[in-house]
């Protein structure tokens, strides 16, 4: 699906008995996604293998320490996990999926998302919403597409107020920006555990904004999962 080469199926007893689904992408493409493994920041899931020693403070990274030291943001997001490092390859695939709008690319991640979701316990899985303008422009919400492709049901607890594209802003601008999310009408999340879902974790600002609104409205725990970081 990615390289449009023919896929040579791996022959195993499982495939012989029809237990495996036909792979969407070839092994070579699959290996090109760099999965996050090894030691990582306890909060944001950043792999320590690729981080200079000086930016690591015990079991968390410098960025998360800064977030946690800030009264306004401390404890907003309990934990983030990401599937892959944001390498050039992953970046290209996500760009084709989300900006060019190749919806069927969501299927590529189905297996990995299913596997990782088993490790989470939550009441609702919530895609980071797009503003109406952005949704019209793209035609679909990429986070929602990924959740659905993996066979889960997204719950829409949040709505987004339209603003400039995140990718055009610096870290400080993103962090200082006023509230971009608000609660959808008529939902009750008292003492619930929420799992947010987004495609990319960059500064963690989007997810913390969303998490903060959820916590202010009674959520007991807010975690997040992203494809890449």
């Amino acid at each position: 699906m990615l390289c449009h080469e023919e896929i040579e199926p791996e022959i195993s007893w499982r495939s012989f008995l029809g237990k495996d689904q036909a792979p969407k992408i070839c092994t070579e493409c699959k290996d090109s996604f760099a999965p996050i493994t090894g030691e990582k920041c306890e909060i944001c899931g950043r792999p320590f293998d690729f981080l200079e020693e000086e930016y690591r403070i015990g079991n968390i990274c410098m960025d998360c320490k800064r977030w946690e030291e800030n009264e306004e943001w401390s404890g907003s997001l309990d934990k983030n996990r990401s599937l892959y490092r944001y390498t050039d390859f992953t970046k290209e695939v996500i760009a084709r999926f989300k900006f060019r709008g190749d919806y069927v690319f969501a299927d590529i991640f189905t297996e990995d998302i299913k596997t990782v979701l088993q490790a989470f316990q939550y009441d609702y899985i919530v895609p980071i919403p797009l503003s109406d303008e952005r949704l019209y422009e793209r035609g679909f919400n990429q986070s929602e597409a990924l959740i659905k492709a993996a066979g889960y049901t997204p719950t829409h607890l949040l709505t987004r107020i339209h603003s400039e594209k995140q990718s055009k802003k610096s870290r400080d601008e993103r962090i200082q920006i006023e509230q971009v999310f608000k609660m959808a009408e008529g939902v009750e999340i008292e003492c619930k555990t929420i799992l947010l879902f987004d495609d990319i974790y960059t500064t963690g600002s989007t997810l913390r904004h969303a998490a903060k609104v959820l916590k202010q409205n009674g959520a007991s725990k807010v975690m997040s999962l992203t494809l890449a970081r």
Partner: peptide, 8 residues
């Protein structure tokens, strides 16, 4: 061809 739930 691919299929998707179109917001438009």
């Amino acid at each position: 061809f691919g299929e998707f739930p179109c917001a438009r």
